[in-house]
């Protein structure tokens, strides 16, 4: 089984949005020749994490060799990535193989990211599926919102370039004219009142 691509892209975008601090960038640069394979036991799904200087790629398929592999139940792994607690690694449900020494760096990277969906998934262990669906919907909505914003921005730019939208200067001028009109009207009303017309 593989995760739906829109979902994977949405999660990837959420993660990459959170990469803002220099320390995170340094970690990414250090990890950027490495590949982490995550095996989600239970749903038997693989996700591959490929870091680069400004973020990570999350792929459903990767045919090359992976540097480190981790296998565990989805929610256990989420808790591990959320807390960054290496003690959880000794839990029997989690298996770490290959170049284990680099895993703490991956863990550090993920534990510094705190998107809302993590809380959604990890805090609602009882309502497991409900939380999952909420998270999926939330992720897709965020992704959609991002796409819409990007599109609105390009469209806005285009409308502006084609002079279909007024420029800032034109807007200021327009507002000034309205204010002047308002003042004139007030003065005129005062004059009318004054002369009792």
């Amino acid at each position: 089984m593989s995760l739906p691509l829109p979902l994977l892209s949405a999660v990837e975008m959420l993660i990459n949005q959170q990469v803002t601090q220099p320390a995170q960038h340094r970690l990414l640069v250090e990890l950027s020749a490495k590949v982490l394979a995550i095996h989600l036991r239970g749903i038997d799904t693989w996700v591959y994490v490929l870091p680069y200087a400004d973020g990570v790629y999350l792929l459903n398929q990767y045919e090359g060799c992976c540097d480190v592999q981790i296998s565990g139940l989805p929610l256990t792994l989420l808790r591990l990535f959320k807390t960054g607690d290496v003690a959880l690694l000794s839990a029997e449900q989690i298996q770490l193989i290959d170049e284990q020494a680099i895993f703490p760096d991956f863990l550090l990277l993920f534990s510094r990211l705190q998107p809302d969906w993590e809380t959604l998934l990890t805090d609602k262990l009882d309502a497991r599926w409900a939380a999952k669906i909420t998270a999926v919907l939330d992720d897709s909505r965020q992704w959609q919102r991002q796409q819409q914003q990007a599109m609105a921005q390009s469209c806005g730019q285009w409308l502006h370039n084609r002079h279909l939208l007024p420029s800032r200067a034109e807007l200021i001028d327009f507002t000034a004219q309205i204010q002047k009109l308002e003042q004139d009207l007030t003065q005129l009303t005062e004059k009318f009142n004054h002369f009792n017309i």
């Binding site: 792929l59 398929q61 090359g64």
Partner: peptide, 8 residues
């Protein structure tokens, strides 16, 4: 990109 199998 997923199908490409691209590697370092």
């Amino acid at each position: 990109v997923e199908l490409s199998g691209v590697r370092r």
